[in-house]
């Protein structure tokens, strides 16, 4: 039963990575940039939820809703102020700007919220579920997280496959100039992708803090990097790739922690990334890029 518990925990952690990785991969797909500030949006989302519940006394679901709205706006504002002016700049400039935004968000949180960790479990805590006469214990958080990830994936697949805006998004990812010739407003499409990615990051932030309830200004960086790894593992730019990469990474991490070594878990995770990229440089579901002249 221990294996099963670990598997469920791994899938739960992986679901958080997957939801974050969606933001990385969608933004990369359309804006061809790595938004390294994405991890810190998670942290902002978790803080917004924490503050609205513990200081404003709102119910938990209202806190989550506020955090989604807040992060969506944050995503739009950051894109507009920091990245849009660099739309035609070399990609290194954009990358450095993203790292700058990441430090800005972390330090802003440090000034506003202080450096002492906030305990998330003081505001929301879900019970553990006991199954099979107590032989299998799983947390309600894990179930909720996996469920949320599945719902988000289905919704996003429908959005990109069926709706006009979703198709426009795919068109922009493939060929920005051609999309413009169709009458698609590329700037507002990019803005929308940042909004969706950041809104999802808020959900991921809350879910992550339910499982690992210590909230600090640097809370977002490590999961951000892991989710980026997941996006690359699955094939950056691919939405199903982000989901697959995220879940795989979470399972590998939990199993490495349980059966190899707690300290080596991260090394194992990144080691797996290196091996997979050696075999499939475009990631698991990524398409090899043929540059045409």
């Amino acid at each position: 039963m221990e294996v099963l518990t670990n598997l469920i925990n791994g899938m739960s952690l992986g679901s958080v990575y997957a939801i974050i990785a969606l933001g990385y991969t969608m933004v990369y797909g359309i804006a061809k940039m790595l938004n390294f500030a994405h991890g810190d949006v998670i942290m902002v989302g978790a803080y917004i939820c924490f503050c609205s519940v513990s200081y404003l006394g709102l119910p938990a679901f209202a806190g989550v809703a506020l955090s989604v709205v807040g992060c969506t706006l944050l995503g739009i504002i950051v894109e507009r102020l920091a990245y849009k002016p660099l739309r035609n700049a070399p990609s290194l400039n954009v990358l450095i700007t993203a790292i700058g935004v990441s430090y800005f968000l972390q330090n802003a949180a440090l000034i506003i919220m202080g450096s002492d960790p906030k305990s998330f479990s003081s505001i929301i805590s879900l019970p553990a579920l006991s199954l099979f006469d107590g032989k299998l214990t799983i947390s309600a958080t894990a179930v909720l997280t996996i469920f949320a990830c599945v719902v988000i994936m289905v919704a996003l697949t429908m959005f990109t496959g069926k709706t006009k805006m979703g198709k426009a998004m795919r068109a922009c990812s493939e060929d920005r100039d051609a999309a413009q010739l169709m009458g698609i407003n590329v700037n507002s499409t990019i803005s929308m992708v940042f909004a969706i990615g950041s809104g999802l990051a808020a959900i991921a932030g809350v879910l992550m803090c339910l499982a690992y309830p210590t909230l600090m200004p640097t809370t977002g960086s490590m999961p951000g990097i892991k989710a980026f790894t997941a996006a690359v593992l699955g094939g950056i730019g691919s939405i199903p790739g982000a989901a697959l990469g995220g879940v795989l990474l979470g399972i590998i991490e939990i199993f490495a922690r349980a059966y190899i070594s707690t300290q080596l878990a991260d090394a194992v995770v990144f080691g797996v990334l290196i091996v997979i990229l050696l075999i499939r440089p475009a990631g698991l579901l990524g398409k090899p890029v043929n540059e045409k002249v």
């Binding site: 198709k167 795919r170 068109a171 100039d177 051609a178």
Partner: peptide, 10 residues
């Protein structure tokens, strides 16, 4: 446009 520029993956 030149070179067709259709959306290959759609």
């Amino acid at each position: 446009p030149e070179g067709r520029r259709i959306f290959q993956q759609m």
